[in-house]
């Protein structure tokens, strides 16, 4: 990771590096990694350690990326917490209970995510209900539907499903016995989101919406379509994780997934994206997710009380919050000086 970051840094002067939004998250990641490397020792530094936190990072990360984009555009999505179990339940019921082909289950699960996202997007764009409230409403509704329908269809709250070899290989296997295949999906998603946010015109539209929705609309940006798409992306990400979990653990549960709501937001915030909208980067989100995962897994290698992990994550969040203003002030100063 350190080599990668120095490569990144080589193109910039030190001054502009400090002002980049992801610098804070990079520093955070290095500090946390070094801290746990010292305490965790050789096992943490080796492949077992890396795979351990990367597996965690991959799942949160797949959700954190679209959630981050939403936050950059100034919206929240709390419903991801109920989409994860809803999609794994859908996949397990279709392919496990009704014994339909795996593809049907996968598409069904992803469909759940896209549909929830679409409804979220519709509510947020068609009404003046803030996204936080709209998605909390959807979260409760989807949670209730998942439980009610699972009990109606299966008569129980857990459905087991043994996937065929191909789908297990693609979505739920461990490469080398330890690296979850979802890490590679995550990397793929990072590349796609990086392209979308930083290279394609869509990216500047998202930043523009986050900066000022009204003027973005006036500038001819299809803000409603874009917002709905972003919500569908976060629904898709959550559904993807749900399916990866059902493929990996071969069983779907109605409960669970709630931890993803705040965990994904925390990753994004540690990564330097704030709900002030209009600022942030995919690399920042990536680093934030990695930091979060290192803390969560590092405590087991360092034999610390897991509760210390919560305290560290809380402190990191607050540090991200505090440094945000500092970095912003620096950037502002620089910009005014230039003028």
């Amino acid at each position: 990771m350190t080599t990668q970051s120095s490569e990144q840094a080589s193109g910039f002067s030190l001054g502009s590096l400090i002002r980049r939004p992801e610098t804070g998250s990079l520093i955070g990641f290095i500090v946390v990694y070094v801290f746990f490397a010292i305490l965790g020792g050789a096992v943490f530094l080796g492949a077992p350690g890396w795979s351990s936190w990367l597996n965690i990072a991959a799942e949160v990360g797949i959700i954190a990326l679209p959630v981050g984009l939403l936050m950059i555009s100034g919206e929240f999505d709390m419903s991801v917490g109920s989409v994860v179990p809803a999609s794994s339940m859908m996949a397990a019921v279709l392919s496990g209970h009704y014994e339909l082909p795996a593809l049907v289950g996968i598409l069904g699960g992803l469909g759940v995510g896209l549909l929830v996202g679409f409804v979220n997007g519709l509510i947020v764009t068609r009404t003046t209900i803030p996204s936080l409230i709209a998605t909390i409403g959807m979260m409760f509704a989807v949670m209730g539907l998942t439980l009610g329908l699972a009990v109606l269809v299966k008569g129980s709250t857990s459905v087991s499903y043994v996937p065929d070899a191909t789908s297990k290989q693609l979505l739920g296997t461990f490469i080398g016995g330890m690296f979850n295949v979802s890490i590679f999906w995550w990397v793929g998603f990072v590349a796609i989101y990086f392209f979308v946010l930083h290279l394609s015109p869509l990216g500047s539209w998202i930043f523009a919406i986050g900066g000022d929705r009204e003027s973005a609309r006036n500038a001819g940006i299809p803000t409603n379509k874009l917002t709905i798409t972003l919500f569908m992306a976060s629904g898709f990400g959550a559904a993807f994780v749900g399916i990866a979990q059902v493929m990996t653990y071969q069983a779907a549960q109605v409960a669970g997934g709630q931890s993803f709501i705040f965990n994904s937001i925390m990753c994004v915030v540690i990564g330097g994206v704030l709900l002030t909208g209009g600022a942030g980067s995919v690399i920042g989100i990536l680093l934030g997710t990695m930091t979060f995962a290192v803390v969560n897994q590092g405590i087991f290698f360092a034999s610390l009380d897991p509760n210390v992990g919560s305290i560290i994550i809380g402190a990191l969040l607050l540090a991200a919050v505090l440094s945000n203003d500092t970095f912003r002030a620096l950037a502002m100063n620089y910009a005014t000086k230039k003028k």
Partner: peptide
Amino acid sequence: RTSVPTLIITLGTLVAMQGI
């Protein structure tokens, strides 16, 4: 003192307090 949304600030205190 900061310009950070309070949802984020209190998310930080939430997690930290849970741990503490």
